[in-house]
């Protein structure tokens, strides 16, 4: 850990500047409320997502390594809200740590001497482990009483475990604990880390629909009114491809915003493809 107090580098990634602007906005607002300053890495470059590792091994490591280089220059741990970006950055970090050859290659390609001095943190990790549940509880002005949710982690946050080293790869709990801390009723379910098929969403929606419906059905069966997630690809996919068309999916930062009484919260929730405000209004969590 670098000694940077409550200031972190921030890597939003492409989704948060596109389809998932509400995640970007809610992340920044909630972090500010929790006393964390996020400084966006200047001139950051896409992580390559699933296309990088599918087509080209050099780009697979090179693109995220470029971000690590920027972050090391800033000298602060870097917060990454998008699970896909987080996964790619961790993969690159792991390869740089483990393989001499990769370090040599990156020196040549990017003029980057890997130091390993900054940590890559996903947003759940940052908020739960660096800020802590106590602080979160202390900020709650409107507990999410009556809201029954399941937490959906997806694949990329917890797997491969030897790369991400985050939570239990089969039964993660971190996000559950955050949501409990703001008063939501968090239900246990068995699809926490099942894949939604996000990377296939544009081309093979025939496959993806079944996967998304499976996840939504299991959430309903568990008794949840909504799914809470942290991955922009999962959220967009779950909203776009569900047959139901009315089952809400939230970013956890949006719900933290509601619980902290942040005025912008309603604005974020209106950005969803699936109506997310009605449920909140029915529970008197939004006016």
């Amino acid at each position: 850990m670098t000694d940077n107090g409550a200031t972190y580098s921030y890597y939003p990634g492409c989704s948060l500047h596109g389809t998932s602007r509400e995640y970007d906005a809610s992340t920044q607002a909630v972090c500010a409320e929790l006393g964390i300053e996020l400084k966006e890495l200047s001139d950051w470059v896409c992580c390559g997502a699933s296309s990088g590792h599918s087509l080209d091994e050099t780009l697979n490591i090179g693109l995220p390594a470029h971000t690590l280089k920027l972050a090391e220059k800033e000298g602060m741990d870097v917060a990454v809200p998008c699970a896909a970006c987080y996964n790619r950055l961790k993969v690159a970090e792991h390869a740089l740590q483990e393989k001499e050859g990769v370090r040599e290659q990156m020196k040549d390609l990017l003029d980057y001497e890997f130091q390993g001095t900054v940590q890559v943190l996903n947003l759940v990790e940052l908020i739960k482990d660096r800020v802590g549940l106590e602080k979160i509880r202390s900020k709650v002005v409107k507990p999410l009483t009556g809201l029954k949710v399941v937490c959906y982690y997806g694949c990329l946050l917890v797997r491969p475990a030897e790369v991400t080293h985050f939570d239990d790869p089969e039964h993660p709990r971190s996000l559950d604990e955050i949501m409990e801390a703001v008063g939501a009723e968090v239900l246990n379910w068995s699809y926490k880390t099942e894949c939604c098929g996000g990377s296939l969403s544009l081309t093979r929606d025939d496959i993806v629909k079944g996967l998304v419906d499976g996840i939504v059905d299991m959430a309903k069966e568990a008794g949840a009114q909504a799914i809470v997630t942290l991955c922009p690809l999962c959220l967009e996919n779950l909203e776009m491809r569900q047959s139901d068309g009315t089952y809400p999916v939230f970013y956890f930062t949006e719900l933290l915003g509601v619980a902290f009484g942040l005025k912008e919260s309603e604005h974020w929730l209106k950005k969803h493809l699936v109506d997310s405000t009605s449920l909140m209004k029915s529970l008197r969590l939004l006016s």
């Binding site: 990329l156 491969p160 475990a161 880390t193 099942e194 098929g197 996000g198 093979r204």
Partner: peptide, 11 residues
């Protein structure tokens, strides 16, 4: 190409 790289198998 269909593999979603979700890493369930690897885990």
């Amino acid at each position: 190409w269909i593999c979603a790289a979700c890493e369930t198998c690897g885990a």
